[in-house]
Design a protein around this nucleic acid. Sequence first.
DNA 1: ATTTAATTGAAATGATCATTTCAAAATTAA
DNA 2: TTAATTTTGAAATGATCATTTCAATTAAAT
Lengths: 193, 193
Amino acid sequence: MPKVETFDRNQVLLKATEIFQKKGYNGTSMQDLVDVTNLNRSSIYNSFGCKLGIFMEVLSFYKNDIDQSFEKELIKTYNTADAIKVIFEITLKSILEDDDKKGCLLVNCTSEMANQEPIVHSFVEKNQDKMIAMIEDIINKGQLQKIFNEKQTASQYALYLFTSLQGLRMTGILNKNEEELRNLVNNILYILY
Amino acid sequence: MPKVETFDRNQVLLKATEIFQKKGYNGTSMQDLVDVTNLNRSSIYNSFGCKLGIFMEVLSFYKNDIDQSFEKELIKTYNTADAIKVIFEITLKSILEDDDKKGCLLVNCTSEMANQEPIVHSFVEKNQDKMIAMIEDIINKGQLQKIFNEKQTASQYALYLFTSLQGLRMTGILNKNEEELRNLVNNILYILY
DNA sequence: ATTTAATTGAAATGATCATTTCAAAATTAA
DNA sequence: TTAATTTTGAAATGATCATTTCAATTAAAT
């Protein structure tokens, strides 16, 4: 019976994520992927189909990674104010660790490919909707608890915060000044109280 | 004596801008540029040097266009509150007109190339600094006139507003709902009053 | 041990990439 | 008109692109 997949799929996806995040989709060649994954060219095609195939798996992998880190930190939070802060804290940490200015893969591919590849378009659109819905839930709870004001609906605040997160990721590509970025986050959250 | 340049350089740069904005730097080929500019391949190399050469001219062209539309609208404004609103209004208009979800060339190339091409890195960095300085000037005047509060320095508000602009451009790629985006802008500006 | 089917390596495919080359055509000042 | 010089067209360059091919190798199940 068949030989089974020997390589560590997660390890391969991690390496592929790094190179796609660094060079972008169009800037990354199959040769780049062969080099960084230490996988045979045939094995890549065998396991992922085509370049867009491995990219879509990378997108899911990257998104799951973010979801997990959110989940892990959010269950530790005692109130909704902390929950929102944690989301920005994770983003800030990710920015400060991003030494080679790669930026966020989801933001990058939204700007590079959303208008070119329908499958990427629907992926990032769905992902954005989920993210906004998650924030809206938190705001909703916070408003019920009178922690956040009700001048705007939870939905409106969610769009505002999601937009701020994307802005933060863009600004954070070139600006790694922690003090400035922390103050920026405080200013973003000011409207909620 | 020499034959002079016959083609309309601005027209060529406009066409080149459109294709770079739509497909990105790595997604645009010299053949694409030949096709959209109706210029000979040799003429492109003769006039712009190389692909990165024409791209850098496109960046300047695009940036000048934005600067001019800002200048044109800003001289009409009577107070600093309007000045800030005008900046967001121009951005909003640009988003709503962007039917094919190209996004902003400066945002796109920050995410695609700032970490790969030093010359692009320094261009967008300088451009960001100037934009933030311009916003800071407006905030400064507004604070002196007691139109904006002084809970944060003009510099801190400028970074916040610039980040919000970038976030708005990212959100505006997939979300073209004018009502939602207008409310979003109002929320962004809330902190100033 | 033999069968079975996937993995692997390495080479080949043919398209497309950015860039160069160069002779012919075009244009302008003298 | 002639001389000067650039634009133009079209082909060639050689590298790199994504993808395919296929024989050899590998590993599990019988």
